[in-house]
Amino acid sequence: MDSPDEHCGSDSARREAEPRPDRRRGLVQAEVPPLDVDGMTAAVAGTAAFTVALVVCWIELAALRGAGHGDWLWICLAGAVLGLVGIGYLAARRRRAS
């Protein structure tokens, strides 16, 4: 009786599964240093974006309230304040690490 492996594929499929001696196995990763190790750049950019959005929402508060989006001002304020807290935390962590 034939084994099930003999009917599953051709010899060429089995040969393709075997690594070729001229090909290197696996991927080669380039030696690239990380751009931002501690996340300070992202925290500063996010805080700046929330601060700009806060100013815009404050200027257009009447229009936002008329459209039923008056809470956007408070969302932007929360994002800016939490961003400042995060920047403070990251700065303290950066000082401890160095």
Score class of each variant (00 low, 15 high):
Arg93Glu: 03
Gly66Asn: 05
Cys76Lys: 00
Val56Glu: 06
Thr51Phe: 08
Tyr89Trp: 07
Arg15Ala: 12
Ala92Cys: 07
Met40Gly: 05
Thr51Ser: 12
Cys76Met: 08
Cys57Ser: 09
Thr47Phe: 09
Tyr89Met: 07
Ala91Asp: 05
Leu90Phe: 00
Gly88Lys: 03
Asp22Asn: 06
Val85Ile: 05
Gln29Lys: 14
Cys57Arg: 01
Thr41Pro: 04
Ala67Arg: 12
Ala48Lys: 12
Arg96Phe: 04
Leu61Gln: 14
Glu6Tyr: 13
Gly88Pro: 01
Ala13Arg: 11
Arg20Ala: 07
Cys57Leu: 06
Asp11Gly: 12
Ile59Gly: 11
Arg65Tyr: 06
Cys57Gly: 01
Gly86Asp: 02
Ala80Gly: 13
Arg14His: 12
Gly66Cys: 04
Cys57Asp: 04
Leu61Lys: 10
Phe50Arg: 10
Val81Arg: 03
Val44Asp: 08
Met1Gln: 09
Asp11Tyr: 12
Asp36Phe: 09
Glu6Cys: 11
Met1Phe: 07
Glu31Pro: 02
Ala97Lys: 06
Leu35Tyr: 07
His7Phe: 13
Glu6Arg: 14
Asp5His: 14
Trp72Arg: 04
Ile75Glu: 02
Gly68Ala: 09
Ala48Trp: 13
Leu82Ser: 02
Val85Arg: 03
Arg95Phe: 00
Trp74Gly: 04
Asp2Lys: 13
Gly70Asp: 00
Met1Ser: 12
Ser98Arg: 08
Glu18Ile: 09
Glu31Trp: 03
Gly39Asn: 00
Ala53Cys: 06
Gly88Met: 03
Val55His: 15
Val32Lys: 04
Arg95Val: 01
Val56Leu: 13
Thr47Ser: 11
Glu6Phe: 10
Pro19Ser: 08
Ala17Cys: 09
Arg20Lys: 15
Pro33Val: 10
Glu31Asp: 11
Val56Thr: 08
Glu6Ala: 15
Val28Gln: 12
Trp58Phe: 15
Gly9Thr: 05
Ala48Ser: 15
Val56Trp: 03
Gly39Tyr: 00
Val37Glu: 12
Ala48Val: 14
Glu31Leu: 05
Val52Cys: 14
Ser10Ala: 08
Leu61Tyr: 10
Val52Met: 15
Ala63Gly: 15
Val81Lys: 02
Ile87Asp: 00
Val37Phe: 14
Cys76Ser: 12
